[in-house]
Design a protein around this nucleic acid. Structure first.
Length: 269
DNA sequence: AGCTCATGGCGAG
DNA sequence: TCGCCCTGAGCTG
């Protein structure tokens, strides 16, 4: 259940493990068997991430497109595969490394043009160096929808999920309910560049940390907060706890079926 | 053992 | 906006 930074790490890990090797591809579960046979024995050229989408290239000709959705999970290892404790949709095996995937929302074989079509329907990804934030600004600038919802829209901000959404809004003292069209250019630019910073850091560290030095546990006289997601954050999943900035209780509400966390005192506007 | 919830996204209505 | 979906961790009891 990753946000974009995890998918980018997985792309890097797959590339490191298999680049340039002829790999065996199989689908023990059976739901991807026919496609797996098409690419099995071919050369793994590279794996790439865009937003939460992962593409694995074979001979730079065919691509396996994966989206983990809420449940998908990769397992990496060397040598023999462990006993399967679940259904393995996709297994990639080379001389020393293996990787196996269970529970993805999407696992399909695409041509280059089909892959281009997927890329065309997602917005700029803050982790991607060539991302064009103007595309996101145009959408935000003419939208009446709340910025908290726009940040979760993968056609606008690819790779942002529920944690980065909540945290970037807190860091910019912006209410999640602010209509997109009311954001100034300066506010949009600040949010975009902060997403680039935070998500790039997430790729490097493999966790989401958003708390500034002055608010870190050692400066606040408190224990580090080890959440399931494994990072130090201001508001995500801190409902009812004290805001590190102002001491007010962190709020939680439902926004379009997802839990939204924010500090109503700090985040005005 | 059973229930709830989760870093997500799709299509029906 | 709602229901649903391929999983598994963390609770409760």
């Amino acid at each position: 259940m990753p946000e974009g930074h995890v998918v980018h790490r997985q792309a890097r890990q797959l590339t490191t493990a298999f680049k340039g090797e002829k790999v065996r591809v199989a689908s023990p579960q059976g739901r991807f068997t026919a496609a797996a046979k098409v690419v099995s024995g071919k050369t793994f050229t590279k794996a790439e991430a865009r937003g939460k989408h992962l593409f694995i290239g074979f001979d730079n000709l065919r691509w396996i497109h994966i989206h983990l959705g809420l449940y998908g999970k990769w397992q990496f290892g060397k040598g023999a595969q462990p006993d399967d404790t679940g259904l393995i949709r996709l297994r990639i095996t080379a001389a020393t490394n293996f990787a196996q995937l269970r529970g993805p929302a999407v696992c399909e074989l695409l041509t280059a043009s089909e892959m281009a079509a997927v890329l065309a329907r997602i917005g700029p990804d803050p982790i991607h160096k060539q991302a064009d934030p103007e595309r996101a600004f145009e959408r935000v600038h003419r939208s009446a929808a709340p910025i908290g919802a726009l940040l979760m829209n993968q056609r606008i901000f690819a790779g942002v999920g529920n944690i980065y959404r909540a945290e970037v809004l807190f860091r910019h003292e912006l209410s999640p309910f602010t209509p997109g069209r009311l954001l100034t250019r300066e506010q949009f630019d600040a949010i975009w560049s902060d997403l680039v910073f935070l998500m790039t850091l997430g790729v490097k560290d493999g966790r989401i940390d958003t708390v500034r030095a002055a608010h870190l546990p050692e400066a606040m006289g408190r224990q580090p907060r080890v959440d399931r997601h494994g990072g130090e954050v201001y508001v995500y999943r801190r409902e009812g706890m004290k805001c590190f900035e102002c001491g007010a209780k962190v709020q939680m509400a439902d926004m379009q079926g997802r839990k939204l966390y924010w500090c109503a005192k700090c985040q005005v506007g």
